[in-house]
Amino acid sequence: MVPPLSDILKRSASADAINWLNGEVVALRSDFNQRRFYYAFSGVSRHFDKTARVNVEAGDLDSLDAPCPGFTLAGWDEFRLARVILLTVLAEQPTDIYQSTLEKVLGSADLREQVAIFSALPLLPDPDFLVTLARDGSRTNIVDVFDAIALDNPFPAAHFPEEAWNQLVLKALFISRPLYRMEGIDDRANPTLAEALSNLAHERWAAGRVVSAELWRSCANCLTDSIASDIERVAVSDEPGDREAAALIVAEDTTGRFAAIREPLGDLIDAARSGDLTWESLGRQLASA
């Protein structure tokens, strides 16, 4: 059908459901029509189990047609994977049909359907066309939809222009999403984003509020004097993760500007150098708190 995705789906789904999906894939490939696609895409809910997690094994995605670093199916339910399979079949159609059908389906999608569409982005063609859809989608207030775009998804880092990437990171912080799950978070760091993040921290501090310690991750390689003084402030904070964040930045710093805070952060800096403390481990720790 659509290996390797269909092989993964087969592990958890019922034989009836797989047969139905296979029939739809064959029919759509031999004689595509939009109505059939609409019925199949929505109709996934009639055949699969939304509570069943798909069962992914190591190496499963090695045989994808195009390599897709960072793409993962971890945590997906059957609805999501079955719909992503149908979207890859839609993507085989001529560009105008593919694009117009995808726009119509997205424009009428329920929550789970939106999640499936945005999860499929790394596998679909015409990234320029998809960026517009994904940027619109990321303006949602529905956390599951935002997560499908921003978390565990390599598409934004690979294709969002800088201003869109920066907004995505800022919004993730605003709605308390874990930044360590944003693919490419370090690669896409930039001075404009670092300044916006520092401004966000100052705004929160002025209001007597806290910011996630993960915020400083995208500042690590864009240390202005102003941000460096933010780090000095964070280094003596009692908020969860703040001292760890400061230690991670100081451990990488080669300018010697953080002399004053090296001493009190000593143990944490050692942990950062040994790899016991990473942005990943800090993110996990904050997310589980």
Binding site: Q34, R35, Y38, Y39, S42, G43, S45, R46, K50, K104, V105, S108, D110, R112, E113
Partner: peptide, 12 residues
């Protein structure tokens, strides 16, 4: 033209 987009959805 719109109806086919909706009628097979979950909860319809």
């Amino acid at each position: 033209e719109l109806l086919p987009l909706y009628i097979c959805k979950e909860g319809v």
